[in-house]
Structure formats: structure tokens, C-alpha cells
């Protein structure tokens, strides 16, 4: 067990990503849109590939733009399938993300000779290489790991997003009709949230991979939701979980020599199932004689 600057950087970055994802995830959870978040994180793939192809680099603005556009497109497509074609919601999500993901893989194979983009790297990334991947300015100044900067910028963006739009986000999450009635553009807020989700997915996919972003979007908020129902404690608990997950995930992965991002998710899963065991409504016989109030809220 060691603690050096590399370990600190990885844990710090992991925690930043986990907290940013968690904050967005809380609102997705409250809107019952967790699977939409999942769908977006798959659906950005073609955008990433096209952006990559156009700019020739994984780190360009084009990649982020492409992914953002595809994220919004997938939200709109899910909505259109549901409202215009009257397909039930779960099927609309399933059809949308599989189609876009398939197109993404086809594009990767199509451009395989021209771009060095690995489908595995997009899907499950690798945070362990973060300390090597430095941001060096043209004058040779070493500014530290690039991904940490990216995660930091993303973190402050999302912090700002939730802080300034807090009222709008919470009202639209709890009562969409009321929010429309008092003049909040609920559709616009929704689209803004979805674009933040796609932006987070794309800025994190290098480090934790597209699919594991979903875990960080969904699992910590769900875990926190088992313990509390109020919004502010929910956000606080999610952030705490994010930090814990980053620390434990790093050391466990270090210990068995495996994927750090994967281990972060496994730790998140352990917290989740543990909380479900503690807070779940057990049948009367198993609940024992604890003084906790019987669950009226099932």
C-alpha cells in the first residue's frame, strides 16, 4: 500500500469524475431517466468517432462537439419515438442506443486504417495511465496530467450548472407541469441536462470509459436515495460516496492488479447492495426487533 503523487492524482481525478457524474445522476434519478443516461453514454460513440476522424485527435474540440450533438440527438430520438411513433419508453431507449452504438462501431471499422481509435478504449478506458499523459505547453511548461485538468474543468462546469440552475432543475424534476405553469422552460432544462450528461460522458470516456460513466451516473445516486429523500442530503451523500469509491477503488485495483475504473464501479456496487440490504423492506419475520419504523413508504 503506497501513497505517492501518482496515487493522489488518480484518486483525485477519479473523485472529481465520480462527483460530477453523481450530481447529474441525482437529477436523472429523480426524473426516472437513469436508463436515458445509459443510452446517451452508448449513443455518443458515433459522435466521438466522427469528431476523431475530422480532427485526427482524441483530445480535440470536435470530439466533444460531436459527442454532445449525438447525445442531444439521441435524447430527441427517444422522445420522438415515444411521442410521435407511440413506442413504449423502454423500447424507444433500447432501439435508439443500439442503433447509434452499432453505427459507431461500423464507423470505427470504416475508418480503422485512418484513425487509431480502439473500441475497447472507448468502452472502458484506463485511468492508470493518467500520470504519464501530461499536458505540456508549446513552450515546454509541464502543467501536470491532462485528464485531471479535463476532469477539473468538467467538475466546475457541473458545479456551476447545478448551482445556478438548482431551482429550475429541482422544480422540473419534481413537478414538470407546475414548472411549465410558472414559466420555466422545462424542455430546455431537460435538453441542457442531457447535453451535460453527454459532455460528461465524452470528457470522462478516456479515463473511465463510456460504459463505466453510466455506473458513476447511476449507482451512487441510487445508493444515496436509499438513505435519504431530500435533495440536498442526496447531493451531499452522493459526493461523499464518490470520494470513497475513488479511494477504495484505487487501492483494491492496485492490490489485485486490475482495472481501476472497473474496481471503482465494483466498490460502488458493494455500497449499493450493502445499502439495499440494510434499507430494504424485509419481510416481517426477518426484520427482527429493531426499533426502526416499519416502512410505510414502499
Amino acid at each position: 500500500m503506497t501513497f505517492d503523487s501518482n496515487a493522489f492524482l488518480i484518486i483525485f481525478t477519479g473523485a472529481l469524475i465520480a462527483i460530477s457524474c453523481g450530481f447529474l445522476g441525482v437529477f436523472l434519478l429523480l426524473r426516472k431517466m437513469s436508463m436515458t443516461g445509459d443510452a446517451i453514454s452508448h449513443a455518443v460513440l458515433p459522435g466521438i468517432v466522427i469528431g476523431f476522424f475530422v480532427s485526427g485527435s482524441q483530445r480535440s474540440l470536435e470530439v466533444i462537439l460531436g459527442a454532445g450533438l449525438l447525445g442531444i440527438l439521441s435524447t430527441l430520438m427517444i422522445d420522438a419515438l415515444r411521442k410521435k411513433a407511440k413506442v413504449q419508453l423502454d423500447a424507444s431507449i433500447g432501439i435508439t442506443f443500439t442503433l447509434l452504438f452499432a453505427i459507431g462501431i461500423i464507423l470505427i471499422n470504416l475508418f480503422a486504417y485512418k484513425v487509431d481509435l480502439d473500441q475497447e478504449c472507448v468502452l472502458y478506458g484506463e485511468i492508470a495511465y493518467l500520470p504519464i499523459d501530461l499536458w505540456i505547453t508549446s513552450s515546454g511548461l509541464n502543467l501536470g496530467p491532462r485528464i485531471t485538468w479535463l476532469a477539473g474543468v468538467n467538475f466546475f462546469l457541473i458545479l456551476g450548472f447545478t448551482y445556478f440552475l438548482f431551482k429550475e432543475l429541482s422544480i422540473t424534476s419534481f413537478d414538470e407541469q407546475f414548472s411549465s405553469a410558472i414559466g420555466i422552460p422545462s424542455k430546455g432544462i431537460n435538453l441542457a441536462l442531457m447535453s451535460m450528461v453527454s459532455y460528461t460522458t465524452v470528457s470522462s470516456f478516456e479515463s473511465v470509459g463510456a460504459i463505466l460513466v453510466v455506473a458513476l451516473l447511476v449507482v451512487p445516486p441510487s445508493t444515496a436515495y436509499l438513505w435519504t429523500k431530500s435533495l440536498i442530503p442526496l447531493l451531499r451523500l452522493t459526493a461523499t460516496l464518490g470520494i470513497l469509491i475513488a479511494i477504495l477503488g484505487y487501492y483494491l485495483a492496485y492490490w489485485i492488479d486490475s482495472s481501476i475504473a472497473g474496481m471503482m464501479v465494483a466498490v460502488a456496487g458493494a455500497f449499493f447492495f450493502g445499502s439495499a440490504l440494510i434499507k430494504g423492506n424485509w419481510p416481517l419475520g426477518l426484520r427482527g426487533t429493531s426499533k426502526s419504523s416499519p416502512a410505510f413508504d414502499s
Binding site: 453510466v214 455506473a215 449507482v219 475504473a261 472497473g262 471503482m264 449499493f272
Partner: peptide, 10 residues
């Protein structure tokens, strides 16, 4: 979905 997949990746 994501937890199992994460464990699978590990």
C-alpha cells in the same frame, strides 16, 4: 447493468 459490467471489466 453497470455494476455487473464493472465487475466483469475488473
Amino acid at each position: 447493468l453497470s455494476v455487473f459490467f464493472g465487475i466483469g471489466i475488473v
